[in-house]
Write a protein that binds this DNA or RNA. Structure first.
Length: 368
RNA sequence: CCGAGGGUGGCAGAGCGGUCAAUUGCAGUAGACUGUAAAUCUACCGAGCUUGUCUCUACGGGGGUUCGAAUCCCUCCCCUCGGA
């Protein structure tokens, strides 16, 4: 049983060169410059105000020459609102055996081609500046959940070191830019309280426009998320945005917002949508906009269905009768199931939109 | 009618004397997915139950050889391609 308490929900404004973001908010993920399968117009209609792109991916494809010619990522992809770019730090974790980390940076070999690329803290900032990002993330090292303390300590040390280099390079380079982007630091330390604390203090010393909590939901048991927030959030300045990277399930967002987090991103709504899992509002979903305090179990907020199941074969009801996304207004569960069964791209497209709508609406209620 | 090649699990298609309840793909069923190597991946997929180095029934039908046959022989049925 969790408790929602509106008292703790923060409402701050993050001013960027492409507009102001009200928090709490959720960023749909457009790693490669596209929210997979969706148009910019569709994403806008769903209520997204900021999306996330990735340095590593966009650097390799389409490449900075293309972005430069297109006059920046916003222009290239046709998105006029803010973009936060991740630094490539997560790929230090997710690409595992395809990368090698040193104090100077990371060597990546592209999984398919084997081509090698070197990403340093300075290089990452440089790329993000060239992309025209509104919120730039420092390069960090993100060890897998439940790594040994020794490994995590080393990652924290390196992350602080890189953060310093990023800040220096950013300060020097962004001076010439008219409206300078924001620069966010990333706190590491995995599940270890002392390392989290140390990481936070180091970053605060350097000073950033916002603070992200990284290295969460990377394989450690769920229960640690709450603890990590308990350690870290109280250390963070009240007037600066707080971003919990890569999280998460709806109840994790609700919980984290109540712990003082402002910004989120996660692949869950889009990836699971593409894979045929749909989020459906339950009764207490609507309490989020109405009641100031209540206890809940996750299933009282939402449930999920695998649309491919036989039980939906002849189910002519909408996926979620309380949803006003295009899917739910237009098609039945049976039809969506049919789309998935025949492998038509419309299925993943509609499901992605539906799930994003769920996430954005949920977080919108908490912002209200 | 003659000649040649075939008939394998829902489909396609391996296997060509034992390690075959039978490779693989598709379809089917269920599950996973948390800063996207992900329109991906995993499991199951003849039947039964006491879920097991278990029991049945199975590679067109029938018969035979063999300790043992999807695999070899005979025969019948069917398909494809040539020739009358």
């Amino acid at each position: 049983m969790e408790t929602f308490n509106k008292i703790n929900v923060r409402h701050i404004k993050i001013a960027t060169k492409h507009g102001t973001i009200n928090t709490p908010t959720f960023m749909p993920i457009a790693t490669q410059g596209v929210v997979k399968g969706l148009t910019i117009s569709e994403i806008g209609k769903l209520g997204a105000n900021i999306i996330l792109g990735n340095t590593y991916h966009l650097w390799l494809k389409p490449g900075l020459d293309v972005i430069k010619k297109a006059k920046g990522l916003h222009n290239f992809m046709g998105w006029r609102k803010p973009i936060l770019t991740d630094s490539g730090g997560f790929q230090v974790f997710s690409l595992g055996k395809f990368q090698k980390t040193t104090d100077e940076g990371v060597w990546f070999s592209e999984p398919n081609s084997g081509k090698k690329h070197f990403l340093s803290p300075e290089k990452s900032i440089d790329i993000q500046l060239k992309l025209g990002s509104d919120i730039i993330m420092v390069l960090d090292e993100c060890p897998p959940g439940l790594s040994s303390k020794k490994v995590v300590r080393e990652a924290v040390r390196r992350t602080s070191d890189w953060a310093k280099k990023c800040k220096e390079y950013f300060t020097k380079t962004a001076r010439n830019i008219k409206k300078r982007p924001l620069l966010f630091g990333i706190i590491q330390g995995n599940v270890y309280k002392d390392l989290r604390t140390e990481s936070a203090k180091e970053l605060l010393k350097i000073g950033f426009d916002g603070y992200a909590i990284g290295g969460v939901a990377v394989g450690e048991p769920r229960k640690y998320l709450k603890k990590v927030l308990e350690y870290v959030v109280p250390l963070l300045p009240r007037n600066k945005p707080r971003y919990l990277m890569g999280v998460g399930r709806p109840e994790e967002l609700i919980d984290s917002i109540c712990s003082g987090i402002d910004l989120f991103d996660c692949v869950i709504p889009t990836r699971e949508g593409r894979h045929g899992k749909l989020f459906i509002r339950s009764k207490k979903f609507f309490w989020l906009g109405k009641k100031n305090k209540f206890a809940y179990k996750p299933e009282e907020i939402y449930k999920t269905i695998n649309i491919g199941r036989v039980e939906f074969k002849k189910d002519l009801r909408p996926v979620d009768p309380h949803c006003d996304c295009y899917l739910c207004k237009t098609y039945s569960r049976a039809y969506l199931r049919h789309l998935f069964k025949i492998g038509d791209i419309l299925g993943p497209r509609l499901a992605s939109q539906h799930n994003l709508k769920f996430y954005l609406e949920m977080i919108g209620k908490m912002r209200a």
